[in-house]
């Protein structure tokens, strides 16, 4: 049996006193066509926390991330992100969310620098920020190569660089370390590392690594079930793995 979600105080970087929670949902419902993908999800994630999101393929991890990004409307329940109810105040979230989705969200016929430059202009950021982020992601040498010509690992790095451009308050990361060699993985892990005021939701397939840095854990199951929502503290890697397989 999975341990019951206990009302323990969150582990490390605790919420600043008085700061509003980053994400609150109640009985969240989302569907593809006539099939419910997420049903009855209750969340409360404090500002600055890291959430590890687990679930086998097709259990709605990506759907949840797009819901939190405001790119999809819930079919039922309530959802509040960074203090704004969705979908009513979706506009207020603009520019505050960094999303690394399954698709890289980059124009494949443009170079890395052109993609980031376009994104920076949309965000009203100076051109110098592009160079800065390219440097951080160690992409300076490749900056003028079109995305279509890059390896999957480099595309992934570019996508992370794009998501970090505006230094967003909420990072939504769908397997951010996928396709990366160990050196690159370390580099990206540093880029997306916890910071004061930065809330992170990270979908991954690696229980050990995911659990290590998580304050809260969400495990989604097939058939739109929620297997676990709650603090990471009481969970062991073995618990997670058994939840996964259940």
């Amino acid at each position: 049996m999975p341990p019951a979600p206990a009302a323990l105080p969150a582990a490390q970087p605790g919420p600043a006193p008085g700061a509003p929670p980053a994400i609150v949902s109640h009985q969240l419902l989302s569907a593809h066509g006539q099939r419910a993908v997420i049903r009855g999800l209750d969340l409360r994630i404090e500002t600055g926390q890291t959430v590890a999101l687990f679930g086998a393929n097709g259990t709605g991890k990506s759907t949840l991330l797009t819901l939190l990004a405001g790119l999809r409307s819930p079919h039922g329940g309530t959802l509040e992100v960074l203090g704004h109810p969705l979908p009513a105040e979706r506009w207020a979230l603009r520019g505050q969310i960094g999303l690394v989705a399954h698709a890289p969200l980059l124009y494949r016929d443009l170079s890395i620098a052109e993609n980031l430059g376009y994104h920076a202009r949309l965000h009203g950021l100076p051109e110098s920020r592009v160079d800065e982020v390219l440097g951080l992601a160690d992409l300076q040498e490749r900056r003028d190569q079109p995305v279509a010509a890059l390896s999957r690992g480099l595309v992934q790095r570019s996508a992370v660089a794009r998501a970090l451009l505006s230094d967003p308050a909420l990072l939504l990361l769908d397997e951010p370390l996928a396709n990366l060699d160990p050196v690159a993985a370390e580099l990206v892990a540093g880029l997306i590392a916890p910071r004061p005021g930065r809330t992170r939701v990270i979908a991954s397939h690696d229980p050990a690594a995911g659990l290590a840095e998580a304050d809260q854990v969400i495990v989604l199951g097939s058939g739109a079930t929620v297997k676990y929502v709650g603090p990471a503290g009481p969970l062991s890697v073995a618990d997670l793995e058994s939840l996964y397989r259940a």
């Binding site: 990004a69 405001g70 790119l71 603009r94 520019g95 969310i97 960094g98 999303l99 989705a101 698709a103 890289p104 969200l105 980059l106 124009y107 494949r108 016929d109 994104h119 949309l122 965000h123 009203g124 794009r162 505006s166």
Partner: peptide, 17 residues
């Protein structure tokens, strides 16, 4: 077509433009 292929609309909606 280009926007839908490369997620341009999502990119745009994530920005404050």
């Amino acid at each position: 077509a280009g926007e839908e292929r490369d997620g341009g609309i999502e990119q745009f909606l994530l920005s404050p433009a």
